[in-house]
Nucleic acid binder design. Structure first.
Length: 499
RNA sequence: GGCGCCAUGGUGCAUCGGUUAGCACACGGCUCUUUCAAGGCCGAAAGACGGGUUCGACUCCCGUUGGCGCCGCCA
């Protein structure tokens, strides 16, 4: 049996979006599951909509997800070029061939006429579509029209009798009435092919075996099927995957409130593992109740039969849950490594990080790992490990620091800690608690003020573990600083109340 | 408007003729605990509707309704 060949064929008309990448995921997983060839083909046939930089973002996104392509831009291959804009002569040749066979024709209709036609059809509630005026033209008329519009398009002459049928792996047997079909444009007046044409020609030439694409293409598949028939080519296996919907249950688009730019998820510090897990399980299921999949499991278990028929709503909460799970699955070293870029940017560690930077980081990571979701939030969560001059959180300060006996408590604890010979969670805990007891305070009464003094915050990892990492001298200094600060604030409060 | 696709809790999935309809997220409560997470326990929450087929339908068929998609010299 021949190895499958699949392609992901985005058009570089902007930043890739989540829906695009999900389609790529299915193609990629099927490919790897079946030891096939994964091809990246760039469908840059709309010169007006192509944007600078989007190709780079597409490639970056795929690589970030670990979905490297076997053929395509930057890696080459035997079926190139992989940019449709570099294959214009090929499309021209095949379009001419169709004209010779009577299966395509030049159309001289102007955009104005097409627009009028459309308006007429709309206002009279007629089916929309080209009226085939140029399909059967006499020589004289053709010459006349050519003078009027020297840049004709080429349209495919659809078979308008009977039906066009095909099998879709996900949808089953599909039947479309040919009388409703449109003579669609295959070559535009600027000489570029349309998607409907270039896609078919390239899929054939590149020997694509399976076309896995969004279900929005179901309606245009009859066009493609007829093209294959007209050329006498064997059509690929059609696989129409369900759409991803936004919060309003519309096809995911730039207008959705849901963030659709894929690279923004990279910037936010999502893990490629989590993203892959999330995207693969939207519209696909292995059949078992399972939440976390590794890349290897996905590749091993992915089959076309598991693709569902109904569209799925993009649920950020689920993505975040998966993200948290994958963060917790990482080893300390691994997570530390992935945090480095974010910490460099925050200025917490050097570039490159020193061995002591790394050593310190690896002591912090276990403390934040259970509560970290987005990697980009790590610097803020780690602030007090790297900075001593932080501000006290307003609410926490009011509740725990600006209190009658707080300065004294903090100083007593500082004293106890300062005299410690051994610095460990257990000795720290004992010292802190004893400090409290000497003032008739216990548990939360002492721990909360100390936490705010040490971290500036009311929430975070276990207090003694975090103090252990921060170190004795810094902890003592912070307690004294907090005591002084609290005392000064207390005086302000007093003078205000007495006046 | 035409054509097509789809239809299990709020969301993502499981169950592919016989189940008290299962899991996860989110939500609520409890628990652990110095806080926040993570974890554990509990709870609320679903087969759109109507006909068939069948001993028996969430599951198969038809219709209705609803949602979505497409109808471009976009892809």
């Amino acid at each position: 049996m021949n190895k499958p060949r699949l392609r992901f064929a985005p058009s570089p008309t902007g930043s890739p979006h989540v829906g695009n990448i999900r389609t790529a995921v299915f193609n990629y997983l099927y490919c790897r599951h079946n030891d096939g060839t994964f091809i990246l083909r760039i469908e840059d046939t709309d010169r007006e909509r192509c944007t600078e930089g989007s190709l780079e973002e597409i490639m970056l996104s795929l690589r970030w997800m670990g979905m490297d392509w076997d053929e395509g831009p930057e890696v080459g291959g035997d079926y190139g070029p992989y940019f449709q804009s570099q294959r214009l002569d090929i499309y021209k040749k095949y379009a001419e061939e169709l004209i010779e066979r009577g299966r395509a024709y030049r159309c001289y209709c102007t955009k104005e006429r097409l627009e009028e036609l459309r308006k007429y059809q709309e206002s009279n509630k007629l089916p929309l579509g080209y009226d085939r005026r140029c399909r059967e033209l006499g020589l004289d008329e053709r010459a006349r029209l050519e003078r009027e519009n020297p840049e004709p398009v080429i349209r495919f002459a659809m078979n308008i009798e009977g039906t066009t049928e095909f099998d879709d792996v996900v949808r089953g047997h599909l039947v479309f009435d040919n009388s409703l079909q449109d003579d669609f444009v295959i070559i535009k007046s600027d000489g570029y092919p349309t998607y409907n044409f270039a896609n078919v020609v390239d899929d054939h030439l590149m020997q694509i075996t399976h076309v896995i694409r969004g279900e929005e293409f179901i309606s245009s598949t009859p066009k493609h099927v007829q093209l294959y028939e007209a050329f006498g080519w064997k059509a690929p296996i059609w696989v129409s995957v369900p759409l991803i919907l936004d919060e309003r249950r519309r096809k995911l688009s730039k207008r959705s409130d849901t963030q659709t730019r894929f690279v923004s998820y990279i910037e936010d510090g999502y893990l490629p593992e989590a993203m892959l897990n999330f995207l693969a399980t939207m519209g696909w299921s292995s059949g078992e109740d399972k939440k976390i999949y590794t890349r290897e499991e996905l590749i091993q278990q992915f089959t076309l039969e598991g693709i569902s028929t109904s569209a799925a709503v993009f649920d950020l909460a689920r993505l975040n849950d998966l993200q948290g799970e994958h963060v917790r699955l990482l080893s300390v070293d691994d997570l530390a490594g992935r945090l480095i870029p974010f910490l460099k940017e925050a200025g917490y560690i050097g570039d490159p990080p020193t061995p002591s930077d790394l050593e310190y980081l690896k002591r912090i990571v276990p403390l934040i790992q259970p509560r970290l979701v987005l990697l980009k939030d790590a610097p803020d969560m780690m602030l007090y490990f790297y900075r001593d001059d932080f501000d006290y959180e307003e609410k926490g300060a009011r509740k725990y620091l600006i209190k009658e006996n707080s300065p004294q408590l903090l100083e007593v604890v500082a004293e106890k800690l300062g005299s410690l010979h051994e610095w460990s969670c257990t000795t720290i805990e004992r010292a802190v608690r004893e400090g409290g007891i000497s003032l008739n305070m216990e548990g939360g009464q002492v721990i909360h003020p100390v936490r705010v003094a040490i971290t500036g915050r009311t929430v975070g990892p276990g207090l003694f573990e975090l103090m252990d990492v921060i170190g004795k001298d810094r902890c003592v200094a912070r307690l004294r600083r907090a005591a002084d600060w609290a005392r000064s604030r207390l005086e302000v409060v007093e003078s205000q109340t007495s006046s």
